[in-house]
Computed example of a mutant assay.
Amino acid sequence: MKTEIKLIDYLSTRRSIPAFQMGEPGPSKGEVEAMLTLASRVPDHGKLAPWRFIVYRGEERRRISEALAKIAIGDKPELSEEMVKVENTRLTRAPVVVAVVSRAAPHFKIPEWEQLMSAGAVCLNMVIAANAHGFSSNWLTEWYAYDPRAYAILGVNEGEKIAGFIHIGTPTVPPTERPRPELSEIVTWVGDDT
């Protein structure tokens, strides 16, 4: 039975689980569609939807991972056996991986920067939506998010870029806390103190 928590409680304890620490079950197609619906509810100046989703599920994740591994091994034939294994499992660590693809482009009114930030907001909303459905999630990029040679393998079109891969599954270990920045180190106050 899933328990409901208040948003403030969730935000104060939100943590990512590493993708390799996720297992089955993953979300169903209907649950993924519900997550995508929630994820797309982000600030989007001009209503451009300058992003789209690619959902990787099932055995196709293995085929894509192995194709990506060929690129990595071709670039670095000296990769250790352990790193070859990592490369061969890029999209199989979690049961479902969702690519958030940025379609940001020059626009007469909306700066590309705003479009890129909207894609980033989609990534975070996807993480939150997965958590709201009772799953763990992790927003990753890694080398293949930036390598145009990987784009055809991943289903990314010319002119598009990867904003992030959201790995979704069931945690196999409890989440651990990590150090967070002190507000005094990241906040500048301008104006009166009241």
Rank of each mutant, 00 (worst) to 15 (best):
K85H: 09
S80I: 06
L7W: 12
S40W: 03
L79P: 01
T89N: 13
A105N: 13
F53G: 09
S184N: 02
W189D: 03
E177P: 01
Q21N: 10
D193F: 03
K6M: 07
G164A: 07
L68R: 10
I128L: 11
P148W: 11
G30M: 00
A94C: 06
R149D: 00
D147F: 07
T188R: 09
A94I: 05
I17M: 03
D9A: 12
L38I: 08
A105T: 13
I168P: 04
I5S: 10
V187W: 03
E82R: 14
K29Q: 00
F165C: 09
A121E: 06
R61A: 13
G120V: 09
I186L: 14
R61S: 08
R14A: 12
P111M: 12
A94E: 03
G46M: 10
A145D: 05
I8A: 14
P175K: 04
A150T: 10
P43E: 13
L183V: 12
G191Q: 09
E185A: 15
G30K: 14
T194L: 14
A94F: 02
F108E: 15
R63E: 11
F53Q: 02
R52C: 01
F20H: 11
S184L: 11
E87G: 05
K161E: 11
Y151G: 08
E87Y: 06
A119V: 09
L154D: 01
V190Q: 09
E31G: 02
S28F: 05
K47A: 12
K47I: 08
T92A: 07
R93E: 01
W113T: 15
S16A: 14
A69N: 12
A163H: 07
R180I: 08
Q21P: 00
N138F: 00
A130Q: 07
G155H: 11
N157K: 14
S184H: 05
N88H: 11
G159Q: 13
Y10R: 06
N157L: 14
V127D: 03
P18M: 03
G191C: 13
V187E: 08
R93N: 02
F108V: 12
L91H: 02
F20C: 06
I54D: 00
A163S: 14
N157P: 01
R90A: 12
P27M: 02
V96D: 03
R52T: 04
V84H: 02
E82N: 10
M22V: 03
T37L: 11
D193R: 11
Y151W: 14
